[in-house]
């Protein structure tokens, strides 16, 4: 399946680009927005990585087959999370441990997820790998697990409280600022840019918004128009149409996730604005295809599969009694027409 193939591509990309900077050293490569090309540094390992990190990086880690893990999945309808989940399941099998997936329906809120966590605690899993919809709201669930002595490892989103053994996530602000950099370069540092925000009630939505602003606000001639899509393609359709009307001199669009980017692309095509500079975020298959076809100038890639793999590895190591890093950046990359074929493995 394509998912599986992408898993390994993504992993090798992560390995090569070495985004794992563990224990608070994340950001060492901020000055050097990587292309995330798997061929960029073949076999090389930047010096910043410690021996422990290398253990994380290389190969599966054998766990006790009695380990029962649970993965709390959110947004089961979102490709990012589907990929992450598939990677968790596959890696658990490779590591010889069992993992149960508990998915939170998209229409449910954090309260439901807290209940799910409480149930997981009741069922006495050995470890919880947690993806959450709400950084603050999930805290009661985490403290329940803490009280029961069940380790919690967070992926993608940092809970704002409770004790976790480790956090594996994309540095969202950094990733978004890379998108901003691409746009700034493409438009020559001047013009109106539409920022199709994600849901600002969500931490990642906030961070991507901040990252984009951080990058573009360095250019006095760039005007940012913020509009919120709540991650929804349908909302992006109307917003793009309306902004093209009020601001026909719009030159670029940044979307905090892929479906709105693609919706914006549809609108621009329909209105003959093929010159629009559009950057997507997430690196979904359709988003990458649009880069290949020239519709998007770039797509910011996260590595949900890497996130899942590292999450499982770290949890198993923790259960094995090893020390593990407190935070790990699972990396991000900019995909352009030049390197898209390496990721688009249909």
């Amino acid at each position: 399946m394509t998912m599986k193939r992408r898993t390994f591509v993504g992993l090798s990309a992560a390995l090569a680009a070495s985004p794992f900077l563990g224990r608070g050293v994340s950001g060492a490569q901020d000055d050097d927005p990587i292309d995330a090309s798997p061929a960029a540094t073949p076999g090389g390992t930047p010096a910043a990585l410690s021996a422990d990190d290398l253990k994380v990086l290389y190969g599966p880690v054998q766990g006790n087959s009695a380990y029962r893990l649970v993965f709390m999945q959110v947004f089961p309808d979102n490709p990012f999370w589907t990929t992450l989940k598939d990677a968790v399941v596959a890696r658990a099998a490779e590591n010889g441990v069992t993992v149960e997936v508990i998915a939170l329906p998209t229409t449910s809120g954090v309260a439901e997820q807290v209940s799910q966590m409480e149930n997981a605690v009741t069922q006495q899993y050995d470890g919880i790998i947690l993806g959450t919809v709400d950084a603050a709201g999930i805290i009661p669930g985490i403290t329940t697990a803490n009280a029961a002595g069940i380790p919690v490892l967070a992926v993608d989103t940092a809970p704002s409280g409770g004790e976790i053994i480790s956090l594996v996530q994309t540095d969202n602000a950094l990733a978004a600022s890379r998108g901003g950099d691409v746009i700034a370069e493409a438009i020559g540092g001047a013009g109106k840019v539409l920022n199709l925000q994600g849901d600002l009630a969500n931490l990642n939505g906030q961070l991507r918004n901040e990252g984009l602003h951080r990058s573009l606000e360095a250019f006095p001639d760039i005007e940012i128009i913020d509009q919120n899509t709540h991650w929804q393609a349908t909302e992006a359709l109307a917003i793009t149409e309306n902004i093209l009307t009020s601001d026909p001199d719009l030159v670029a669009i940044f979307a905090a996730n892929d479906p709105p980017a693609l919706a914006a692309l549809e609108v621009c095509r329909a209105q003959g604005r093929d010159d629009m500079v559009i950057v997507g975020f997430d690196g979904t298959r359709d988003g990458l295809q649009a880069v290949k076809d020239g519709g998007l100038i770039a797509n910011i890639l996260q590595f949900p599969d890497v996130m899942g793999i590292i999450g499982v590895d770290l949890m198993v190591r923790h259960l094995n009694g090893e020390e593990i890093p407190a935070t790990v950046d699972s990396g991000s990359g900019v995909v352009t027409a030049d390197n898209v074929d390496e990721y688009l493995t249909v």
Partner: peptide, 20 residues
């Protein structure tokens, strides 16, 4: 049925959109 139909749509596609 709001939940049921949404669940069917997600299950049929494994949650992923199909562009083009």
């Amino acid at each position: 049925t709001m939940q049921i139909f949404r669940g069917i749509a997600l299950q049929l596609t494994n949650g992923s959109p199909r562009a083009g």
